[in-house]
Simulated assay, not measured.
Amino acid sequence: MTVLKGDERLDYLLAENLRIIQSPSVFSFSLDAVLLARFAHVPGRLGKVVDLCAGNGAIPLFLSARTKAQITAIELQERLADMAERSVQYNKLEAQLKIINDDVIGIAEKIGYDKYDLVTCNPPYFPAHEASEKNLLETIAIARHEIYLTLDQAIQSASGLLKQGGRAAFVHRPGRLLDIVTSMRAHRIEPKRIQLVYSKAGKDANTLLIEGTKDGKPDLKILPPLYVYDTNGDYTEEVRRLLYGENS
């Protein structure tokens, strides 16, 4: 039995029939992780996937339900990597999922250049100089702010890992769209698909999903918008399917 530590709890990933270790004071995954894991094109059984900035392993766990490909997850913070590793063990996914406690910067030198079919990344969203929430635990501050990893460094690392024709998928804030596209192209990843996520109709988009192909040809598709809540404040049918596997 997986041993929980401190205030950790064992939560359900209902649509995937898996469990995940979370902590309210250290780290709990958000809807962004669910969205990215469902947005990314996953390879088949023989493919290889890397998830950067893996946190407590939510995205690798979600991806494991969509593909039999080998998945490697990279997380800088030892506490979060440990949580992810214990979740992998609890779900008996050691043969498919590998958690590595290491820096995203320079990771291709350690696990291999130009050999992966898909890289996913839910990077820190906020520039380091905006880390004004001084009361935040260091763990949370590092996950939210570009203290140890900038957006450009994350994209550069993804490019180094990808084989030609491989895909990289990111979730971020719409306000960084031009920064993301500029960086992707600078690092040989051609943007191919974009989807904007809205809390509900009539509101500004608050989440950006973007996927590109290494050395791909320009041909960008803008997907239909995704709304999280309906007019009654309930999850939309599409989001309910993502979270719970429900048909309505």
Rank of each mutant, 00 (worst) to 15 (best):
I155M: 13
R173Q: 10
S157H: 12
Y148K: 13
S159W: 07
I147A: 09
Q156C: 10
H145E: 05
G166R: 01
R176W: 10
R167V: 15
L178Q: 08
I155V: 10
I155D: 09
R167E: 15
G160F: 10
Q164K: 13
A154S: 07
D152P: 07
G175Q: 08
R173E: 06
S157V: 06
R176L: 08
P174I: 00
A158E: 07
L161D: 02
D179G: 01
A168E: 09
R176D: 12
D152V: 05
L162Y: 05
I147R: 14
H172E: 14
K163Y: 10
A143E: 13
K163V: 11
Y148S: 14
S157D: 07
K163I: 09
A143W: 04
G160V: 05
I147L: 15
G160M: 07
H172W: 12
K163T: 14
D152E: 15
G165W: 00
S159E: 06
G165L: 00
D152F: 01
P174C: 00
G166C: 03
G175K: 02
K163C: 07
F170M: 13
Q156A: 11
G166Q: 04
S157P: 10
I147V: 12
V171Q: 09
Y148V: 09
Y148M: 06
I155R: 12
Y148G: 10
Q156N: 07
G166M: 02
H172F: 15
G160K: 09
S157L: 12
G175V: 03
Q164V: 14
Q153K: 15
S159D: 06
R176S: 08
A154R: 07
L149E: 04
R144K: 15
A169P: 00
I155E: 09
I147E: 08
R176Q: 11
I147F: 11
F170S: 15
A169V: 07
S159A: 07
Q156P: 03
L161A: 02
I155K: 10
H145P: 08
G175S: 10
L162V: 04
V171N: 04
P174H: 00
P174W: 00
K163R: 13
G160R: 10
D179S: 04
R173G: 01
D179N: 12
Y148F: 11
A143C: 11
Q156I: 06
I155H: 11
D179P: 06
A154Q: 05
G165K: 00
I147T: 15
Q164P: 10
Q153N: 10
L178P: 00
G165S: 01
R173F: 01
S159R: 04
F170Q: 13
E146C: 06
I147G: 04
L178K: 08
Q156V: 08
H172T: 13
L177C: 09
R173A: 04
R173Y: 02
L178E: 14
A158N: 03
Q164E: 14
P174K: 00
G165N: 03
A143K: 11
P174G: 00
L149Q: 09
S159N: 15
L149F: 05
A154F: 03
F170E: 13
T150G: 04
A158P: 08
K163P: 08
R176M: 06
F170R: 09
H172A: 13
L151N: 12
L162N: 05
D179Q: 06
S157T: 09
D152R: 05
A143V: 11
A168P: 01
F170K: 09
V171G: 07
I155F: 14
A169Q: 04
L161I: 03
A154T: 05
